[in-house]
Simulated assay, not measured.
Amino acid sequence: MTEILFAAVDPTQALIPGINLNIGATDDPNGVSTTLRILLLMTVLSLAPAILILMTCFTRIVIVLSFVRTALATQSMPPNQVIIGLSLFLTFFVMSPVFAEVNETALKPFQEGQISQEEAFDTAMIPMKEFMAKHTREKDLALFLKYTRVEKPTTIQDIPLTVLVPAFAISELKTAFQIGFMIFIPFLVIDMVVASTLMAMGMMMLPPVMISLPFKILLFILVDGWHLVVQSLLLSF
């Protein structure tokens, strides 16, 4: 059987694909443009996590959702994958007008060859800076402006990214922790009531968390907690 299979294949008639690698100068501007676009895309993809975390609303959303899980004391429920995935989709939902403006004013003209790479980057930063400046506290912005020793900007677009991005990041951290504190209050009250009740009944060996956890989950379900948390996050933007 093996001999029949080998006999059916003629080595002289087999076609081997050829591979050509050419390294050198070129006179085709389209080839150079394509190469630069690939390099630009790879650079953007490598920086995508930092861009997503520090220049969008992802930081606030993921921290608040993590606070909800910690306040409920449900350990790893919901799991990290669910929290990160929900945070990503909420980020895309909130940032969709900004991304649409970046696509219309910067990405499409650059792909059509109407503007250069530098012009596309400057144009794309206009809506991003407007979003970040809207949610950045003046105190945080003044902190970084003071240490960079640059002239006081007259417009939002005059603020350098090296100043605006960290100022926006710490502003988002403060806002997220403020929301997280408000989420903790009702669950803290339940823990205190359960702990006091167990202490009065003399059941000091029974962990209060074991008793308060079902009540906290019940309260969260009755008030439709996930709806309220996501609604509060969306209204905060």
Rank of each mutant, 00 (worst) to 15 (best):
R60D: 01
G18Y: 10
N30I: 14
F99C: 13
I61R: 00
K174N: 01
M77T: 13
L188Q: 06
S232R: 03
V98R: 15
A25S: 11
L90E: 02
C57N: 15
A124Y: 13
F131P: 06
R149Y: 06
M95Y: 04
T34Y: 12
V229F: 00
Q13L: 08
L228T: 05
K108I: 15
V229I: 12
S96F: 10
D158T: 14
I63Y: 00
V82L: 12
S96H: 05
A25M: 08
I23E: 05
L90Q: 02
A195C: 14
T74P: 07
P78F: 00
S46L: 05
A7Q: 14
V94F: 11
M182E: 07
A133L: 02
L219Y: 01
N80F: 11
I19Q: 10
L88S: 10
N103D: 09
I211R: 06
L41Y: 01
I221Y: 01
T26S: 08
L5H: 08
L219F: 09
L47Q: 10
L36A: 11
E118C: 02
M182Q: 12
M205N: 08
V150L: 15
M204E: 14
K216S: 00
L143A: 09
R69N: 08
L218V: 08
Q13I: 13
C57K: 15
V189E: 10
T43F: 12
G180Y: 04
K129H: 07
S196W: 10
A25L: 12
K174S: 03
P214W: 05
P97M: 13
T162D: 11
L218M: 07
E118S: 09
Y147N: 10
L54T: 14
T43Y: 09
L107G: 03
A167H: 11
V44K: 01
M55L: 13
S236G: 02
F184L: 09
S46C: 03
T59Y: 02
I211F: 09
I179N: 04
L222N: 07
T197Q: 15
A73F: 01
I159L: 09
S236K: 05
A14L: 15
T105G: 08
A100D: 14
P97L: 12
P78A: 00
L40H: 10
I156C: 13
N80W: 07
M1R: 00
K146D: 06
H135F: 06
G225L: 08
L41A: 13
K152L: 14
N22G: 06
I211M: 13
L107S: 10
M205W: 04
M203N: 11
K139F: 06
E104F: 01
L45W: 09
I183G: 02
V68S: 14
M1F: 00
K139W: 05
S87N: 07
R37P: 06
Q75V: 13
E172W: 03
V62M: 06
I156A: 14
M204V: 12
L90N: 01
D122G: 01
L15F: 09
A142S: 07
M77A: 11
K152R: 13
S46G: 03
V193N: 04
I84V: 14
S116H: 01
M42H: 09
T123V: 11
G31F: 01
D191Y: 08
I217C: 05
L39E: 04
V163A: 11
L143N: 03
T162A: 14
I83R: 11
E130L: 10
F89W: 10
G24I: 05
P11A: 15
N20S: 10
F168N: 11
N20Y: 03
L21D: 10
A142P: 00
A133W: 04
I170N: 04
G31K: 12
F110V: 04
